[in-house]
């Protein structure tokens, strides 16, 4: 893998293939060493002696995540141009992300074009489960890595090539900590919390619940059998993120799923309308410029 923003140098596999073209380990520092600039080129006195050197301060003021955010901006621009509604699904392992995704796809695949990027440390089990529903899915294996980053997703998009006006799910590595910091270019992070977990998870892992704009509380069919306090979970989550939208669903029984599907369809429609508005305004602009050019030619 390209070492730009990943934490598993050389171990990332996309669709089972190593990401070789960006495997810069071994040469990544050569570029710096190759820049030979004489430190006294400013004409100052050549006063250095072994063991003595002059230091200076250099102002930088750059966000540590700026590289990742640059790749995320590229992904986001691509989604906007294509009218793709992209969601980054984040949760602990075992919250039921893939089961919910399969149910969602079964319900929507007749009405929407759907594609899935699956992130896991190892195996392509999840991508295979998704492909069994009949939609394209690409597995990213992060190796020892604990999250997807925008660069990996950019490569995955080249291979997966989601259709215009489609719905793209990016299922992140099951981890409530690390994926919070990494923007992938998605429209929303959707956090999934299942009722078999503790209702205090939003307090224990606040970064993720702050980064998400939607919270799906899954496995609600199990509420009678567990001590999970639904109201408290929502209250805790909104302490961290007052604007958080909460939907309660059961991927097994289908309870609450209609509301989730409606939210997805509204998001896709808004994204497609935004694309059409952009295309329409560009067409108007081109027509204006052409009219002006032909006006000039006649004059």
């Amino acid at each position: 893998m390209c070492t730009t923003c990943g934490c598993a140098v050389g171990e990332t596999r996309i669709g089972g293939e190593d990401v070789r073209e960006h495997s810069r380990s071994g040469m990544r520092y050569a570029a710096v060493k190759a820049v030979h600039v004489h430190p006294h080129a400013d004409g100052g006195a050549h006063a250095h002696a072994p063991g003595m050197s002059q230091s200076r301060m250099v102002q930088i003021e750059r966000d540590i995540l700026s590289k990742n955010d640059g790749y995320a901006a590229q992904n986001r621009a691509r989604f906007e141009e294509q009218g793709v509604f992209a969601l980054n699904l984040v949760s602990s392992p075992g919250s039921g992300k893939t089961t919910l995704l399969c149910r969602t796809i079964e319900a929507l695949k007749g009405r929407l074009s759907i594609a899935v990027v699956e992130g896991d440390q190892q195996t392509s089990n999840d991508a295979e489960r998704i492909r069994a529903t009949g939609v394209p899915a690409l597995q990213i294996n992060t190796g020892k890595g604990c999250h997807l980053d925008a660069h990996m997703v950019g490569h995955a998009l080249q291979q997966l090539a989601p259709a215009d006006d489609s719905l793209l799910f990016i299922e992140n590595v099951g981890n409530l900590v690390c994926p919070a910091a990494f923007d992938l270019g998605e429209a929303h992070k959707v956090a999934i919390l299942s009722v078999t977990e503790g209702e205090d998870k939003p307090l224990k892992y606040p970064d993720m619940f702050r980064a998400a704009s939607v919270l799906l509380i899954n496995k609600t069919d199990l509420l009678p059998y567990v001590s999970f306090k639904l109201d408290l979970a929502v209250e805790y989550a909104r302490r961290i993120n007052p604007a958080l939208q909460v939907l309660c669903v059961s991927a097994t029984t289908g309870e609450g799923v209609a509301e989730w599907l409606a939210w997805l369809e509204a998001g896709c429609a808004a994204r497609q309308a935004q694309k059409r508005a952009t295309v329409a305004s560009l067409k108007r602009r081109v027509a204006e410029l052409e009219a002006r050019l032909s006006g000039n030619a006649q004059a």
Partner: peptide
């Protein structure tokens, strides 16, 4: 351990500078 990715990010900013 996303700090490892972030540390890589810091190093890249240093190398660019």
């Amino acid at each position: 351990m996303h700090e490892l990715s972030l540390a890589e990010g810091v190093l890249q900013i240093v190398e660019d500078a």
